[in-house]
Nucleic acid binder design. Structure first.
Lengths: 260, 260
DNA sequence: CGTTTAATTGAAAGCAGTCAAACTATGTGG
DNA sequence: CCACATAGTTTGACTGCTTTCAATTAAACG
C-alpha cells in the first residue's frame, strides 16, 4: 500500500484520501513530470501576488499560509502537515492572495500547473479529488474563524493543538507519541490572533492544568479526552470520513504518559 | 446578455463569473430540473449535520453561514448576497459542517445534488467553475481570519462593510447608492467576533468620523476611499478579475453623497 | 563560546466584554 | 388609529482578558 518507488506515489496516496482512483488514473499520476525540492525553514513556496505556476505536495516538514495587514501584522491562516496537497489553493486563481512559507526544513514535490491542470481536466476523478481537498481546506478555515472569533485564549490554543495532533494522526504519523510542534510561540500567536506573550502564559496554564506536557517544543497530550473537551474540539470538520481509509479509533488517541 | 426567461439563466450567469461557458454548457444548465423556493428571514437552508442533497443559488435576499461553539456562542463565517452560489460548500462532502440561514426573506433556486453533480462531472468547464467558486470562497475565509485575528474592532467593522458593499457592487446591484445592510447589530457582532454592544459603539465612532452615514439599517458610504483606507480593505481577495466581465472602475466606486 | 533568537515573567494600561437599564423601532390586535 | 408587545438599539458604569512595555533567562546556532 505504501508505494515508495516514486515520489508521485505519495501524490496518488494524498489524492486517494478523497477518492478511489482507478489504476489508469493512478498510472497517469505516476507518469506526471515532477520535481522534488528541499526548502529551508522560513523559505517561501508562494508569495502573495505571484502567478501560481505549480502545484505541490508537502512530503516532509511543516508549512503555513499567511497574510499581512496593511499595518504589517501577520495572520497565519492555515498550518500544513506532511502529506498535504499545498497549492490547489492558488493553482487555479489568477494570482496568489497569500503567502505559503515553510515552518521547518521540508521536501516538496512540485508538478507544473499546466501538466497537473491538464490531468485534472481530463481525468474527472482527479479533478474531483482536488475539489474535495479544497472543500476540506475551506471547512478548516471556517473552524478557524470560529476558533479565533468565539473562543477565549485558552480554548483557542488548546483547539489548535488538538487540530494539529489530529491531523498528524490522520496522516499516519505516530499517534499516541509526543509530537513536535515546529512552531515558535510567536507563530502560534499569529495563528491564533493573540500575542506571543499571552500564548506563553496560556501554554503555562494548560500545563499547570495537566492538559499538556512540554519539553522545549515537544508536546505530549497525556489526557487527550480532557484536552478535547477543554478546547471544544470536534474532529468532524476535518472530514476524515470523506478521507475514506484511515480509521483512527473513533474517540481517542491513547497517550501513555501521566505526569511529568 | 441578461436572460430572464428562466431562473436557470441566473445560474448560468453566476457560473459565468468564473468561466466562459460554451453554448452547449449553457443549454445543459438551462435544461436542469430546478425549483424556486421562498424562505422567510431566519429560515434554515442547511443545518449542521444534514446530508447535503441540493445545490442552490441565492436569487434575492441575503443569507449567512454560521457555526456554534460547544458553549452555544455563534460565529457567522460568511455572508451571501444575491447571485451567490450557495451550496457548493457542502454539496460534495459527506455532511454539512455548518448552518446556512436566511438573513432576509429570500428566493432560492435549488437543483438536486444528483442532477447538478452529474452535469459538473460530464461538463468539465462547469466543474471548473464550481472549483473556482469554492476557491474564491476560501479566499474570503482567509481574509475573515485575518480580519478577526488581526484588526481592532473599528477596522473589523469597517472592513466587513467594505466587503459587503464591494460584493453587492460586483453583483451589479446599484453602486454609489445607499444600500441596506440587512443585519442586526447582534449578527454583525457574531460575524466579527465582537459583542453587540461594542459593535454599536464602533458604528457610532465610524459615523462620528464621517466614514459612514446611517438611517436605521440603511448605510451610505460617503467617502469610500477613506473608509477603504481606514479598514485596510483591498478587494483583490474577492478575485473579481477571475470573475472576468464586470469591470468596475479599478480603484474606487464614486459615491455622490457628502454630508448628512 | 559568543551571538542571536526564542521563551518567561512582572507590572501597568487599554480595548472590548459584561451587566443593566432606557429608549426606539416595528408589528399586532382592538 | 392608538395601545401594547416584542425585537433591536443605545448608553453608562464597571470589570477583566489580553496587550504593551521592559527586563531576564534559556535555548539554538555557527
Amino acid at each position: 500500500m505504501l508505494d515508495t518507488t516514486s515520489p508521485m506515489a505519495r501524490m496518488a496516496k494524498s489524492l486517494e484520501k478523497y477518492v478511489v482512483l482507478s489504476p489508469g488514473d493512478r498510472d497517469a499520476i505516476l507518469a506526471l513530470p515532477f520535481k522534488v525540492t528541499s526548502y529551508e525553514s522560513g523559505a517561501y513556496l508562494v508569495r502573495e501576488g505571484d502567478r501560481a505556476d505549480k502545484c505541490a505536495l508537502l512530503m516532509t516538514g511543516f508549512a503555513f499560509r499567511h497574510k499581512l495587514t496593511g499595518a504589517g501584522t501577520r495572520q497565519i491562516v492555515a498550518i500544513h502537515v506532511p502529506g498535504d496537497l499545498l497549492d490547489m489553493q492558488n493553482l487555479f486563481l489568477d494570482y496568489a492572495d497569500h503567502n505559503v512559507q515553510m515552518l521547518s526544513r521540508s521536501d516538496v514535490l512540485t508538478v507544473s500547473r499546466s501538466a497537473f491542470g491538464a490531468l485534472a481536466k481530463s481525468a474527472a476523478l482527479i479533478g474531483h479529488a482536488v475539489l474535495l481537498g479544497v472543500l476540506v481546506d475551506a471547512s478548516v478555515y471556517r473552524e478557524w474563524i470560529l476558533n479565533i472569533g468565539r473562543r477565549d485564549a485558552r480554548g483557542r490554543v488548546a483547539h489548535l493543538i488538538c487540530e494539529i495532533a489530529a491531523r498528524l494522526d490522520m496522516e499516519g504519523l505516530p499517534p499516541g507519541q509526543d509530537y513536535e510542534l515546529p512552531m515558535t510561540q510567536e507563530q502560534l500567536a499569529d495563528a491564533l490572533g493573540l500575542t506571543p506573550v499571552h500564548v506563553n502564559r496560556v501554554l503555562r496554564i494548560l500545563e499547570d492544568d495537566g492538559l499538556i506536557l512540554r519539553k522545549s517544543r515537544q508536546i505530549r497530550l497525556p489526557h487527550w479526552e480532557q484536552l478535547r473537551r477543554a478546547s471544544d474540539f470536534d474532529d468532524r470538520y476535518l472530514h476524515q470520513a470523506q478521507t475514506k481509509g484511515i480509521s483512527t479509533a473513533e474517540g481517542g488517541l491513547e497517550w501513555s504518559g501521566t505526569e511529568a
